[in-house]
């Protein structure tokens, strides 16, 4: 194993560059160094102008997502030793988002989509505090727990060619969050979220590429959530037809 590794970073400086171009940095190689720590090394020792995001260093905050050799991954959860044999790796900002600067993607669109699905527990009527908490059995928790592990890192959006083609698609994490609340026994908001799921930008945009679930660092399996959303949307459609046939209003 050689004692240094070449890290090529796609740099983009707005106002200066027309498009991102790669810049090479040589970083001392050690087996326990993460890609994020390598970026910190570059910034501290080689080039203070490099821009990238991070916070927790432990796969919790979801801010350090970048394309590492063409795959969306968390910088803090990926180690240089994986690339030691090749002696180089390439970094660029997350695909499918506009690049703000260097490795920083503008994830505004993703944040908007998260809001669209009302990712909070909706109650038809608020209970007074005196009635105590909303309780849930372990089995009820189990139904949605996996989908509540999402850290909003956006890797699944960088993995989704449908979002890349048209970013009005609500996308994997937002649709997962919709299912997460729809499956929550304390929530009354499913009917309200159905409109977003059924819409043009909703679940039916998904063509089951499935790469989102492969790259998710938290094993959320957004592809499962989106496609269960299709099942829910189909049932909703059938029920609405039935209601219309009976002369009622659809919901």
């Amino acid at each position: 194993m050689s004692d240094s590794i070449a890290i090529y970073v796609a740099r983009y400086r707005p106002g200066q560059d027309e498009a991102p171009t790669e810049q090479r940095y040589d970083v001392p190689l050690s087996t326990d160094l993460s890609v994020l720590e390598a970026l910190n090394y570059i910034k501290d020792e080689l080039d203070p102008t490099l821009a990238y995001r991070w916070s927790c260093r432990m796969a919790i905050c979801g801010s350090c997502g970048v394309m590492i050799d063409g795959e969306p991954r968390l910088g803090c959860k990926t180690f240089l030793r994986e690339f030691a044999d090749r002696g180089e790796l390439h970094l660029r900002a997350l695909d499918n988002f506009p690049v703000e600067r260097d490795l920083i993607a503008d994830v505004e669109r993703f944040m908007d989509h998260l809001e669209t699905v009302k990712p909070w527990t909706v109650h038809n009527s608020e209970r007074p505090v005196s009635e105590g908490e909303y309780r849930q059995t372990p089995a009820e928790l189990e139904r949605y727990q996996q989908f509540s592990q999402c850290i909003n890192c956006g890797l699944c959006y960088a993995a989704c060619p449908q979002f890349g083609r048209d970013d009005s698609f609500l996308g994997p994490a937002a649709l997962t969050l919709a299912l997460r609340y729809n499956l929550d026994s304390r929530d009354d908001g499913s009917a309200g979220r159905m409109a977003a799921l059924n819409a043009d930008e909703g679940v039916w945009r998904c063509t089951f590429v499935g790469y989102c679930s492969e790259v998710c660092p938290k094993d959320v399996d957004p592809a499962q959530a989106v496609n269960r959303g299709k099942v829910a949307s189909t049932i909703n459609y059938g029920l609405n037809l039935l209601r219309l046939a009976r002369g009622e209003h659809d919901t």
């Binding site: 983009y12 707005p14 106002g15 560059d17 498009a19 991102p20 695909d95 499918n96 506009p98 690049v99 703000e100 503008d106 060619p161 890349g164 083609r165």
Partner: peptide, 11 residues
Amino acid sequence: MTRKPYRAPQR
């Protein structure tokens, strides 16, 4: 500073 996000088209 003005923003000038770079958008890579999907090829």
